[in-house]
Nucleic acid binder design. Structure first.
Length: 547
RNA sequence: UGCCCGAUGGUGUAAUGGUAGCACAGCAGACUCUGAAUCUGCUUGUCUAGGUUCAAAUCCUAGUCGGGCAACCA
């Protein structure tokens, strides 16, 4: 992976001998699905370990049993693997360290560096005060070490209700950094934990747990997002006070993408209110959503590399992601023909009842990928907007009296336009040049327009889901009012298209380029009787192409 | 309001005191059996004001603007 300010620091650490190896970690809380923002972190954490020949731990930060669910654990692992990363044996749980964390808390109390506080959330808020004024010292701050030890023991023994007491680090009620004003490090939660069951009714807070986890695991560079910057002094204080090995925390800017949201809470809201089908709805910025949409791990990784790692907050244009998706798909996706808005064409000069097969390349630029056969007959479908009765200038496609190439088949000329009683075009009649079999005329005449087609007799109906951006606003989270007011009502259009017959046997996840339209992949909803395709991303379209 | 962080074309990023570069997007053209891909060219930028220096995007000072922090969440 390319370099960034964190790698500059690592280079210096390695050169100075401060570290001889690099250990990072990706520490998700199992409380939701991973999204493209996590992908950025995963690429950084694992990519950095890979670059320096170190290791990256996958660690579940499961310190809050009321927020977490093992439902998410499998999904997280699947997503990290799909992205192409491997934690090997380095799978850890914060909850496995609960005993050691408890001992550390006791040690802090014994040092006179932590105390049990009986103030309610609201009461302590008053003592903590506001940033520009000093806080007040709670009375419990001067409790004896013995009494603190006893109270903490009772907290652990379950003698108190949730919220009755909390263990606080005794730091500085006058610190300009609010996180240093005697932060809570243990709270009472009578909740069973997926891993430790009912063994504990007190659980460590993030600030206390995370630095210990990193220290215990020998992490060298603990990478997180910018909002944790003000937590770093606390991270350092705890490890220094306990005389433990101190990893260094470095912060980088989280990813924001145009036309979507990245907040787990808001994403959950969309799922719960059924505004999307589920976490893996192809419109979601989740990793499973992108996978279902047809994005490839290679494209997502290339995107993450491209956007880089900085401390500058930014809003990245989703076009950049789509660019990498197209770039990868262009390389790997076999070409097929599908008509999404069918208009029937009768080749009047083609014998009734006759059909033939054409051999078309899977990828014109990659002959080594072979060919497939596509049936042709007298009646075919073409795309409705590939015909204009009164063509605008620079319209290269079919119009009355003009000749176009049916991709890989024949040159045809439109002779008649058939309309219904309302004047709607329902059918076209064309003649074909039998000598142009394969698509080229022996006389070498140039035909500018080439359009795709599917035989009416052989084509298969398929459900095609056309996805567009989820929101109409570039930055829905920054808009006034409810972000859901900015949902794009046209983010999903379901249509029935006609696909070339070979496409009917596509398996879920198979990716194709529907020529002249875009990249599509077979959805898991696909069955033998009903193929379902998702539009991953459209082809780039020259602005001069007007329909 | 206190502390912390940041600011380079429309967007994302590089330049580590010495030619402001790359990618995306946009525009124009070439090529083309995909109006795709490919190729060529073009437009557009160092937040402001001072200072240090032979030389400043880079260092210093002040300001402006943006963000973060005031859960018994992570």
């Amino acid at each position: 992976m390319s370099s960034n300010f964190i790698h500059d620091i690592i280079d210096a650490d390695l050169a100075s001998g401060k570290h001889s190896e690099v250990v990072t970690r990706f520490p998700p809380e199992p409380n939701g699905y991973l999204h493209i923002g996590h992908a950025k972190a995963i690429c950084l954490d694992f990519g950095t370990a890979l670059k320096y020949g170190g290791r990256c731990h996958l660690r579940y930060d499961d310190t809050n049993p009321t927020a977490e669910d093992t439902e998410y654990v499998g999904a997280i692992e699947e997503d990290v693997r799909w992205l192409g990363f491997d934690w090997g044996k380095n799978l850890f749980w914060a909850s496995d360290y609960f005993d050691r964390m408890y001992e550390c808390a006791v040690e802090l109390i014994q040092m006179g560096k932590a105390y049990v506080c009986d103030l309610s959330v609201d009461a302590f808020k008053e003592y903590r005060g506001v940033p520009h004024l000093p806080g007040k010292e709670p009375a419990g701050r001067n409790r004896s070490i013995e009494e603190n030890l006893e109270l903490f023991e009772k907290m652990k023994a379950g003698e108190f209700a949730d919220g009755a007491y909390v263990l606080r680090a005794k730091i500085d009620m006058n610190s300009p950094n609010l996180h240093m004003r005697d932060p809570a490090i243990y709270r009472i939660k009578h909740a069973s934990h997926h891993n430790t069951g009912d063994k504990w009714c007190i659980y460590p807070m993030y600030d206390f747990a995370h630095c210990l986890e990193d220290s215990i695991e020998g992490v060298t560079h603990s990478l997180c997002t910018l909002e944790f910057e003000v937590h770093r002094p606390l991270y350092d204080w705890i490890l220094e006070t306990l005389s433990l090995y101190q990893p260094h925390q470095y912060e980088f800017a989280r990813l924001n993408l145009t036309y979507t949201i990245m907040s787990k809470r808001k994403l959950l809201e969309l799922v719960k209110e059924k505004l999307v089908s589920n976490w893996d709805d192809p419109r979601m910025p989740t990793i499973c959503g992108m996978r279902r949409r047809g994005y490839t791990p290679e494209a997502v990784r290339a995107f993450c590399t491209e956007i880089g790692i900085t401390k500058t907050e930014s809003l990245t244009d989703v076009a950049l992601l789509e660019h990498h998706v197209r770039t990868d798909l262009n390389e790997i996706a076999p070409r097929r023909m599908a008509v999404l808005d069918p208009l029937k064409v009768v080749i009047t000069t083609y014998p009734e009842g006759q059909s033939e097969e054409f051999e078309l390349p899977n990828h014109p630029q990659k002959p080594e990928t072979g060919t497939r056969t596509v049936p042709f007959a007298r009646e075919i479908f073409i795309e409705r907007d590939d015909f204009m009765e009164e063509p605008v200038k620079k319209f290269f496609r079919l119009a009355p009296g003009t000749e176009v190439r049916l991709r890989g088949a024949y040159l045809v000329t439109c002779t008649d336009v058939i309309k219904d009683a309302n004047g709607n075009i329902v059918e076209l009649h064309c003649t074909h040049d039998p000598d142009s079999r394969g698509g080229n005329a022996p006389d070498g005449r140039k035909v500018k327009g080439t359009i795709h087609w599917v035989s009416a007799q052989h084509g298969i109906k398929a459900e095609v889901r056309l996805y567009d951006r989820l929101f109409t606003s570039e930055n829905p989270a920054a808009e006034e009012g409810d972000f859901k007011d900015y949902l794009n009502p046209d983010s999903l259009k379901v249509i029935t298209g006609i696909i070339e017959p070979g496409l009917a046997s596509a398996n879920p996840g198979d990716k194709f380029q529907f020529e002249r339209i875009g990249y599509f992949c077979a959805d898991p909803d696909t069955t033998e009787s009903k193929p379902v395709f998702n539009r991953t991303v459209g082809l780039r379209e020259a602005a001069s192409k007007q329909a």
